[in-house]
Write a protein that binds this DNA or RNA. Sequence first.
DNA 1: ATAACATTAAACACGT
DNA 2: AACGTGTTTAATGTTA
Length: 387
Amino acid sequence: MLFFQQIYRGPLRRGRRGAPAAKRPSGCQGNVRKDRTQTGRESECVDLYLTTGRQMEKNTQALPPHSPLHFPRNNSEALPLSPSLPQPASLHSSHLHSSSSPRVSGGSHCLSLSTAPEQDDLTCLNWLHQRGNLLPLQPLPKISTLPQMFDPIPAQHLPSSPAKPPYSFSSLIFMAIEDSPEKSLPVKGIYEWIVENFPYYKEAPGGWRNSVRHNLSLSKSFQRIHRDKSQSVGKGSLWRVCPEYRPALLEVLRKTHYCHRTNRSLLNKPVLLEATDNGQNMFNETMELSDLDSLSSNPPCSFTPDHEELIPMESVGLPEVTGEDTEKDPLADSGYIELHYYQYQQYQYLVLPGDTELDLETVEILQLDAEAQEAAGSLLDLAGGNH
DNA sequence: ATAACATTAAACACGT
DNA sequence: AACGTGTTTAATGTTA
């Protein structure tokens, strides 16, 4: 649960997000969000992100840790998503040990990260950078210093009143559900998660709950599942994330994160939710990395209202994943590189874009300590030197 | 200018 | 009856 490294060579497509409406003339309590500036990060850059995560045992059991095919069975497994978890300070000095033969598409890597720079990025929602393709790295000894890893933000830096999270309700719901052990929550559970993790909503007018329900109903990204009557407690159904839309949700989160990465007030609660496989495998174990990437970067569709049916508890099928309809990212060769270290339990993962070519030299560089990795130029050179 | 997306409010039905 | 849940419609704002 410690860190991960992702190498993302490619673009940051600007999100196309609508912003909350300003106060309506009728007097409705709208929320004007003026901080929704699109930074866009279109120029090349190199970032080292660290984050925490939880629980990855299931993933690591599917295949031998060193197997080239051993990688999280779906996107979520390597996704730390929990805003409520403290940000481990020791991450700033984690280690990425390296080892095995370099292989981009499914190869295992042993990387060693050390001394990451202290920067806001390290306390950001780094997991948002998670891409679909995760490569298992060499198992690491568990880091048992979680308590000291917490890097609290000085009280004087905390906003007096919680700022409204930049995340859309879809994203909030997504995070809430993914953070649940069963990967499903009743509406009430979603409320509670949001309130617990985003204090803004603790004091916000109750209208947002309506918005949550509205979103659940309207968005294709979420599915209502029948509750087992025998063990039903409370009203309503359980809601889960539709696996088919998971990559799109991840993408939205990632974009949101990028747009707000400089807003410290929004980053004071690192999201570390880690989505584990819950019988909702997005990918099979033989899927190529390119498939993962295309799946992640080419969501099947947008979030439009189209709830079709109430799915039964047990019907959680695998979406058909093909790379044929995916279009190449026009900015894929922009030279943008993003490092993402990810450690899940005792394993490390290297997240790569599907078409990344990782050669020995690259791996060597990745094995450099964080200080060296800060040398963005080197990494940019790896991207083609067009920076 | 437009479409797509997001937010918010409100009304209504239904179940507990 | 009250409340929570789920669905739907509408108005409005933002952004690509």
